[in-house]
Design a protein around this nucleic acid. Structure first.
Length: 557
RNA sequence: AGCCCUGUGGUGUAGUGGUUCAACAUUCUGGCCUUUGGAGCCAGCGACAGCGGUUCGAAUCCGCUCAGGGCUGCCA
């Protein structure tokens, strides 16, 4: 919101500004988001939602939610609800403007009658493969159907009988009479209606004919008084047809504007491929946290605000592009850094015994909930003789630049004490326990003598610790552009380490109070979120994203 | 091959003929700071697809070339 005024306008907002200046639609701006209810929404849709609803908000205009339900074979009610949920979760509101293309089936049919009466549409008996042959190719003109010159009377009669369900699927179609030699294939007598004896999720068995996208979409926009019909680049070649129908009908005409769809590295966006990954069991479902679906991202812990910021930041243009996933990840961290409460959690526990701390004593230390936001307050964290720290925070023989715990070395336990490692207990060549001492003078983590330690590590008190299962996620694919190579099975690029499950994690007791989908930070480890599959005695936590890790970078060198 | 669209640092965008013109974000490299090796702060690397033309002056206007994308569903 705050950046919208300062940020440069994209080409679509510029067009709209220009139209506003010229008073093209009486100062009105009305957009629409027109999903087909045949799948779940992903972040590519989010870009479109943010654009359409965003523009309406900025211009004191309106944005409709319209389900483009013209193909009953693929569409289901289930998707309608999920799409509505996802849009609301993203943070947008269509108010009372929820529409369906099927609301207009009667009107659209009347317009078809009008076109037939004016000799601009005809019923064709050609079969699907014949129509395809007659259409010609990219470089060869098509030829006229033998049924193209039927009388208006006969066309009217036939269309009525099509509507009445007198013909079988595929037996006839209604076509616009334009030009079979047109260089734009979409203009070679496009099909307006096909026969489908299929029940529709809303109109049930009322219709036997269903309008095609090109025929219906412009009319839907026109009927709703849309001013700017924003769609993706692949519809560019359809715009002449969009305009043709509305001009011939003499009805209100919105303008279609196309922009490039979103691609992100290391993931896929097409419905078909997402479905394939799900059906092959590579991921658990539409809400798998590794997927770019809105449901997946919600479960992963991505804040809607971060997704909106991302969509704003990547801009809008007509260039086919591939956005670096780092930008998305930056937006996620940026938002979570400001908003996520902090806790301590140990992913791979290493037991630590504080030999100079009394057996049975428990004291409470104060931790800051969010250093970025003082109003988030503080909390109590229990401390006792037995603790867990992160396995990787200790090294027997620390290399240069490793600042954490090592034999004889002193570091700080966050919010607690300075701790010195006295002894590492080994078993089968593996460190299984540490014997350490604390300096009681450093209560809270401050040294009265002003001495410094090189690092601060996180910890959890063993008796009070909660057990948790933590799921770590990585990129779903091993290559930046998995669909870029042809003739290769997508499965070859699936990252075998996209999911890593840690079962024996220990987290501080306050986490108990968090509800499913709550987002938070485990200090030094990253951002996390409570998985909805969490039960009374099985705490499941998803890692949203790790913190930037300078040490990991040094280690690599 | 026909039609349509698009070419600015690695990535995504800004720049719309002239002392704010090559900017911003991200990534990457250094440094500062730090009770998260987080965050923050500072600095640095890095681009106008090419060739002509118009002009006093071109990333910006024109032409050509090259490159990338889309279009031959009774899908949307």
């Amino acid at each position: 919101m705050t950046t919208s005024n300062t940020k440069a306008k994209d080409f679509i907002r510029e067009i709209i500004d220009e139209d506003l200046k010229k008073d093209k639609y009486n100062g009105r701006v009305q957009t629409r988001f027109p999903p087909e209810p045949n799948g779940y929404l992903h972040i590519g849709h989010a870009k479109s939602i943010c654009l359409n609803f965003g523009i309406a908000n900025e211009c004191q205009g309106l944005c409709n939610l319209r389900f483009d339900d013209t193909n009953p074979i693929k569409e289901e009610e289930e998707y309608v609800q999920s799409i509505k949920d996802d849009i609301q979760w993203l943070g947008f509101d269509w108010d009372n403007r929820l529409f369906f293309a099927s609301d207009y089936f009667d009107q659209i049919y009347d317009y078809a009658i009008q076109l037939v009466k004016e000799g601009m549409a005809y019923v064709d008996d050609l079969q699907a493969d014949e129509i395809s042959n007659y259409r010609g190719t990219l470089i060869q003109p098509g030829k006229n159907s033998p049924y193209r010159e039927r009388s208006i009377k006969e066309n009217l009669e036939l269309l009525k009988r099509m509507k009445a369900g007198e013909f079988a699927d595929g037996e006839k179609v209604l076509r616009a009479k334009i030009d079979m030699t047109h260089p734009n294939l979409n203009m070679r007598d496009p099909i307006m209606y096909r026969i489908l004896h299929t029940s529709h999720h809303r109109t049930k068995n009322e219709w036997y004919i269903y309008p095609m996208y090109d025929w219906a979409h412009g009319l839907e926009d026109s009927i709703e008084g849309i001013t700017h019909s924003i769609c993706t680049l692949e519809f560019e070649n359809h715009r002449p047809l969009y305009d043709w129908f509305l001009e011939k009908l003499g009805v209100y005409q919105p303008q279609q504007i196309e922009f490039a769809r979103l691609n992100i590295t290391y993931t896929v966006m097409s419905k078909r491929m997402l479905l394939e990954i799900i059906n092959k069991g590579i991921v658990s479902g539409w809400d798998d946290p590794r997927l770019p679906t809105l449901r997946g991202m919600r479960r992963r812990g991505y804040p809607p605000q971060a997704i909106r910021n991302f969509c704003r930041r990547i801009g809008v243009s007509k260039v086919n592009s591939m956005v670096d996933i780092e930008i998305l990840e930056h937006c996620i961290r940026d938002e979570l850094n400001k908003t996520a409460p902090r806790f301590m959690g140990v992913l791979n526990p290493l037991k630590v015994v504080i030999t100079n701390y009394p057996i049975g004593k428990v004291e409470e230390l104060e931790g800051i909930n969010n250093p970025e936001n003082p109003s988030a307050g503080t909390r109590k964290i229990p401390f006792s003789r037995i603790l867990y720290i992160e396995k990787e925070d200790f090294m027997e023989e620390p290399p240069k630049k490793f600042y954490r715990l090592a034999p004889g070395r002193e570091v700080r336990l966050r919010y607690a004490f300075f701790i010195t490692c006295q002894k590492a207990i080994m078993k089968n060549n593996e460190v299984i326990e540490l014997r350490c001492t604390i300096d009681p003078e450093t209560h809270g983590g401050y040294a009265p003598d002003g001495r410094k330690v090189k690092s601060t590590i996180h910890w959890v008190s063993a008796p009070q610790a909660l057990n948790a299962e933590i799921r770590l996620y990585n990129h779903l694919f091993t290559v930046p552009n998995p669909t870029g190579q042809n003739n290769v099975d997508l499965k070859e690029f699936i990252n075998p380490q996209s999911l890593e499950i840690l079962k024996k994690c220990k987290v501080e007791p306050m986490v108990q109070n968090l509800k499913p989908f709550s987002r938070f930070q485990f200090e030094r480890k990253g951002y996390f979120c409570i998985d909805p599959d969490t039960t009374e005695n099985n705490l499941i936590i998803n890692q949203t994203i790790g913190l930037k890790d300078t040490w990991a970078k040094i280690k690599k060198k």
